[in-house]
C-alpha cells in the first residue's frame, strides 16, 4: 500500500484545517460556502454507505451486507452507540452467511 497517498491525504487534511484558521472572517459570511461545507459530508457519507453495501467490483448486488445495514439501522433507532451499530451489522451478516447460506 502506498505511503505517498497516506502522507498526501494527511497533509491536505491538515492544510484544510489550517486554511480555515487563517481565512479572513468576511468569507465565513457567505452562506453558500458554509452550507456547502456542511452538506458535503452528508452527500459523501451517504454515497459511501450505498457503495459499501451494494457495490461489488462495479456490480450492484444484494447480499448479507444489506441485512447487516438494516440490523445496524435498527440498532441506531434504538440509540445504540457507534461500536454497537457496527458489531450488530457484522454479526447479522456473519450469521446469515453461516446458517442461511447468504453471499
Amino acid at each position: 500500500m502506498s505511503w505517498t497517498g497516506v502522507l498526501a491525504v494527511s497533509i491536505i487534511a491538515y492544510l484544510t484545517k489550517l486554511s480555515g484558521m487563517l481565512v479572513p472572517q468576511r468569507i465565513l459570511n457567505k452562506p453558500y460556502f458554509s452550507q456547502l461545507a456542511l452538506l458535503l459530508p452528508t452527500a459523501l457519507l451517504a454515497a459511501l454507505t450505498a457503495v459499501q453495501v451494494f457495490g461489488d467490483n462495479k456490480q450492484l448486488v444484494l447480499d448479507a451486507r444489506l441485512a447487516g445495514l438494516l440490523a445496524g439501522a435498527i440498532a441506531y433507532k434504538l440509540k445504540a452507540t457507534f461500536i454497537v451499530i457496527v458489531i450488530t451489522a457484522a454479526i447479522t451478516a456473519a450469521l446469515l452467511r453461516l446458517f442461511l447460506g447468504f453471499n
Binding site: 502506498s2 505517498t4 497517498g5 498526501a8 491525504v9 491536505i12 487534511a13 484544510t16 484545517k17 489550517l18 486554511s19 480555515g20 484558521m21 487563517l22 481565512v23 472572517q25 468569507i27 465565513l28 460556502f33 458554509s34 456547502l36 461545507a37 456542511l38 458535503l40 459530508p41 459523501l44 457519507l45 459511501l48
Partner: peptide, 24 residues
C-alpha cells in the same frame, strides 16, 4: 489513490469551516 485522496479531502472541507469558527 487519487479518488481516495479526493474523497477524504472533500470530507475534510467542513474542518476548514470549523477552523474559521474556532478562530472567531
Amino acid at each position: 489513490v487519487t479518488s481516495a485522496i479526493a474523497t477524504a479531502a472533500l470530507l475534510g472541507v467542513r474542518n476548514g469551516l470549523y477552523g474559521m469558527r474556532i478562530a472567531q
